[in-house]
Design a protein around this nucleic acid. Structure first.
Lengths: 225, 225
DNA sequence: TGAACTGTGTGAACAGTGTTCACCAGAATA
DNA sequence: TATTCTGGTGAACACTGTTCACACAGTTCA
């Protein structure tokens, strides 16, 4: 009675072929220029057939964004020489910035683009993103424990501070808004150092409760608001 | 012999009508959802007619981006209570962030979007952007002169540091990537204070020569590279 | 083995997109 | 008045995402 299983396998194979073709086109041409027809042509299916596997084009890109988070979390290429908490913190966000350079299409899809509503709407569903964040928040906590960062800081807010800074650099670079003389890599380094120096200066932050946890585990004052 | 003038006026009036219609649709529907046909319908012209006024849809949005810079530079709504250089610095970037909230469509078009190539390609042509930047750089210089910021800092690099931080916050907010508990306004304040504290801590920056000036006026080492 | 059923790919169609172009009316010019 | 020119029209082209009736293949059951 292996028929059901084989059918399942066949289905999964076509699904994968769609995603592979979509990824190739997406990485080389950018997501705006990928059409259902181009994907279908590449896997030698008719355009309508894809709708038996994905309810819409958006959902194909939602699946690709998931792939992007897997790629970002991939430990290959991680800096293993970083041993102190502070070095590991730098390495983590350095890697994040480098991801935006190596995989600009994925980066845009995951952190910038507004044209695939599913990604924004179901952002909290990305398990890989949550896992990655938890890892980095742990490193930040280690920096606090080791005294490299003030104990008054909320690790989740520190995470956001670094994230938005580097997203800003990446967006400015990817959208080609830098002046001819400016260097994005140097700017990324500066933003990293600047944020770090700011955090260590003991400035008090306004942001609260950006801890990534189910609502039930949140502090009462947050649930109330 | 007022015929030529009247023809010129007529042409300009239609051009303006196109831009007005485009702006209305653009602000209410977002730029991805504005089509040449919708603009044409609104001004009761045929779609083809628009191509007598703008060579392509991109050019209409290039003109709108120009309008966006005018809007950003508009002194109405400026904080006049800010008197010290540092307060004026805060006010300037606060206003920049608020612009991203008040005019998200314009903000995206001007600082984020990659789908209107003309804006990226001809970014240095935006006179309004250059003028606005020069004003803020002057305020930064005043902060350095008054001792509020270290004398070792390059004002243009300081400008970029604040810009990218707030662009990061704005992008994260506009693309709906914030966690439920997070507050973008607080985050913007934190990024501002954090960057400021970092700059005042005397950290040395890597970035160089992001001065906005014609090539001829640039330092020799920049021209050489 | 033959009939019925089911899943799935096809291909046409719909409604939309940006852009081009032959045509033609009306205004400007001679 | 006759000619020239400018500029809008509307059809067409080549795309886009999506839907759907149809047909065919593989599976199940008698």
């Amino acid at each position: 009675m292996g028929i059901k299983e084989r059918q399942e396998r066949d289905r999964e194979a076509v699904r994968r072929a769609i995603l592979d073709a979509a990824r190739d086109l997406f990485v080389s041409e950018g997501f705006q220029n990928v059409s259902i027809r181009k994907i279908a042509e590449r896997i030698e299916y008719s355009p309508g057939a894809l709708y038996g596997y994905f309810p819409s084009k958006d959902d194909i890109f939602f699946a690709l964004a998931e792939e992007g988070f897997r790629l970002l979390g991939d430990p290959s290429g991680h800096d293993e020489t970083a041993t102190t908490p502070l070095d590991r913190l730098r390495a983590s966000f350095g890697q994040f910035y480098q991801f935006s350079c190596k995989h600009p299409q994925y980066f845009t899809l995951m952190f910038v683009d507004q044209s695939v509503p599913r990604i924004s709407r179901e952002y909290e569903r990305f398990a890989f993103a949550r896992e990655k964040k938890r890892q980095v928040v742990q490193i930040i906590q280690a920096c606090i424990d080791s005294g490299d960062l003030p104990a008054t800081l909320n690790p989740a807010v520190v995470f956001r501070a670094f994230s938005v800074g580097l997203i800003g650099v990446a967006v400015t670079r990817l959208s080609d808004r830098l002046q001819p003389g400016e260097n994005a890599d140097d700017l990324a380094t500066d933003v990293l150092n600047l944020t770090l120096a700011g955090l260590r200066s003991g400035v008090t932050l306004k942001s609260t409760s950006s801890v990534d946890c189910p609502l039930a585990d949140r502090p009462a004052d947050v649930k109330a608001s």
